[in-house]
């Protein structure tokens, strides 16, 4: 499946790009992270501490165990600091 993967804040800085389009067989967000972290040192560094990583699947906040079936866009970011 083809996925658009977006990164924000320090995840974007560590990975070095705001978005990428990838091919993956990952069934869950957690499997996608394993897939991405195996790509290179930058991805591995960004995903080295999953306690500091939040995600959204198709613009809805989701847990790392959320399924990816039918998803088109997954975003990764640190805990939000709005307000």
């Amino acid at each position: 499946m083809t996925l658009d993967v977006l990164y924000f804040a320090w995840l974007r800085e560590r990975i070095g790009q705001p978005r990428e389009r990838i091919e993956t067989d990952a069934a869950t967000v957690r499997e996608l992270i394993a897939d991405l972290a195996a790509r290179d040192d930058w991805h591995a560094a960004a995903f080295s501490d999953l306690a500091a990583v939040r995600c959204a699947v198709d613009q809805q906040l989701a847990s790392l165990d959320a399924p990816l079936a039918g998803a088109r866009e997954v975003a990764f970011f640190p805990p939000m600091t709005g307000g």
Binding site: L61, M80, G83
Partner: peptide, 27 residues
Amino acid sequence: LMDWLKSRAPFWKREIGHDGAARWVEA
């Protein structure tokens, strides 16, 4: 609403110092 916006709205703050150094604000 403020409690939701602080922790569940997709915003990230970065502080810029007088010396130009940037630091992401932690939740």
